[in-house]
Amino acid sequence: MGIHVEGVTKRFGSFTALNEVSLDVQQGSLTALLGPSGSGKSTLLRVIAGLERPDAGRVTISGEDATGVAPRKRGVGFVFQHYAAFKHMTVRGNIAFGLKIRKRPRAEVRARVDELLALVQLQPFADRYPSQLSGGQRQRMALARALAVEPKVLLLDEPFGALDTRVRGELREWLHRLHDEVRVTTVFVTHDQEEAMALADQIAVLHDGRIEQVGSPRDLYDQPQTPFVMSFVGAAAQLGERWVRQHDLDLRLEPTAGALEARVERIARLGFEARVELQLAGSGTVWAQMTCAELNRLELERGDTVWVLADRARVFAESS
């Protein structure tokens, strides 16, 4: 069941944000919409939520056609990038909002809110106002608020985008555990491939209003279908027609068949890993990724000549 998006097109004036996009999200899965800004990922999420009305196409949620249905009747929980906290309500009031709208009995609301406060670890802050919380706490509150109404699907728009790196990591972990616990179909938008890889069962990569590829993190990394996916999901270098991941570049000290001659321009040791910048004999530069141990074994120095072997490079069809 889950979510089924079919042929959705959305234009803003002359700008086409989504161009005949189709996507299936499995019940209970954790799916990432990954892409650079302007790729249409947030628009797709908002179309699923009903906050944007598509110009063409259909959205089905849990088997029901939701295309013309108002957001409030779709049974979706939505978490905004900047939290969209109700500033004049306490944490408790924020979380209880959807339940109060549904006119649930007072005791039930209270019990459910307490449960959610525990789930998002905000019990001590129940009577505070959003302005008295940190960014991470606000985002957890927003999540609890969305979960309170037991949505069929949970939609998160750049949920960690406004947080600093350390809090991001913690929240990411926490969201993962939370999803394991509540098992609600979840779709989140991110421009951070690492975040998508770390969290999602399934990733949809968007580019210029189209979906380039949908697959598991491993599929996308190992079997990218387009140069865009290859370079956006993990880094990649281009050698003529061929695309290769930097850690797949094999450096030899002797001339080797099929290898390109190059000169070492710069060496950067980053602790465990090291990067070697190379000036190719033909033209252009690439960098090779390796462990520091391997670098030590090669005993490379700036100015050395090496031969670069790219056996695991990929060639993509022209059309993409």
């Binding site: 957001p71 409030r72 939505f78 905004f80 969209a84 109700f86 709208i101």
Partner: peptide, 16 residues
């Protein structure tokens, strides 16, 4: 419009 849209996704009518 964020807060209003949030309320909408939480089930609130326009008036609510």
């Amino acid at each position: 419009t964020d807060q209003e849209q949030a309320a909408e996704t939480l089930g609130a009518s326009q008036w609510q």
